[in-house]
């Protein structure tokens, strides 16, 4: 039976050098990221090339994704949040395309590596903290002090608020990573069953069962891929709202 973990193995395409004791390599993960950037850019530029007053199909898709992310940002972080719109849009498209690309058979899922999702989540929280402190100074830390609470309760609530803030990048990164990892492992295992059952003689009769399950799981994974990209963008907008309006 095929190893369900093998698909997450990084494959070295070219070794570029060493940084300390770390080997800097160009892997299929790097290739997928660059291809995703290319695909997104091509999509956006081809869709806006016609500049039609009445949009065509591709332009409609571009406008739809633009309006979708813009509405997400606006509803969570208000009109001020629109200054972060390019950031949230890039995040959403990047995660969405990488998630969807991973569903193509024999391809690689960049977002199934926790270092990628953690880096993106830390980038989001980093932007929130840096922008919040730049804009509001120490007032930003009022985020940890809920209003209208007796001082005695604050002794309990402030640590809880701080822990909840720190757990944000963890939950943000682990949610995406775990969803991608688990989905692809499940897909691989059920797809592996088909081969194993066919190889097991008479048992081959029930091989359509895992096949049907694989088809259903693929549909579910497409949903999860889109949903996780949306969740990532929505949570980013909500966290950015804290940087813009730290008052509770």
């Amino acid at each position: 039976m095929a190893d369900p973990i093998h698909q997450f193995q990084l494959k070295n395409i070219a070794t570029l050098g060493h940084l300390g004791n770390q080997e800097i390599v160009f892997t299929q993960s790097s290739l997928f990221m660059l291809v995703a950037v290319g695909v997104i850019t091509l999509f956006m530029l081809a869709g806006t090339a016609g500049r039609g007053l009445v949009p065509g199909r591709l332009q409609s898709m571009v406008e739809l994704s633009y309006e979708f992310v813009a509405n997400t940002v606006r509803s969570s972080a208000g009109n001020e949040g629109m200054r972060f719109f390019p950031f949230v849009f890039s995040l959403f498209m990047f995660v969405l395309i990488l998630n969807l690309a991973g569903l193509i058979p024999y391809s690689f899922t960049v977002t199934s590596h926790i270092i990628i999702t953690a880096a993106l989540a830390l980038l989001v929280i980093g932007v929130v903290v840096v922008y919040g402190v730049m804009k509001h100074g120490t007032h930003f830390f009022g985020l940890f002090v809920p209003g209208g609470v007796p001082p005695v309760m604050l002794a309990i609530l402030v640590p809880i608020e701080i822990i909840s803030f720190i757990s944000r990048p963890i939950s943000l990164s682990v949610r995406l990573f775990a969803n991608m990892l688990a989905g692809h492992i499940a897909l691989k295992i059920f797809a592996g069953f088909i081969g194993s059952l066919l190889a097991a003689g008479a048992w081959g009769i029930i091989s359509p069962l895992p096949l049907a399950l694989t088809v259903a799981l693929t549909a579910l994974e497409v949903l999860v891929a889109v949903l996780q990209a949306y969740v990532f963008a929505t949570l980013t907008s909500i966290y950015l709202n804290d940087a813009l309006h730290p008052g509770h």
Binding site: L10, V25, S29, A119
Partner: peptide, 8 residues
């Protein structure tokens, strides 16, 4: 693999 992944 983290260093390479982060750079890319």
């Amino acid at each position: 693999t983290f260093g390479s992944q982060l750079i890319w």
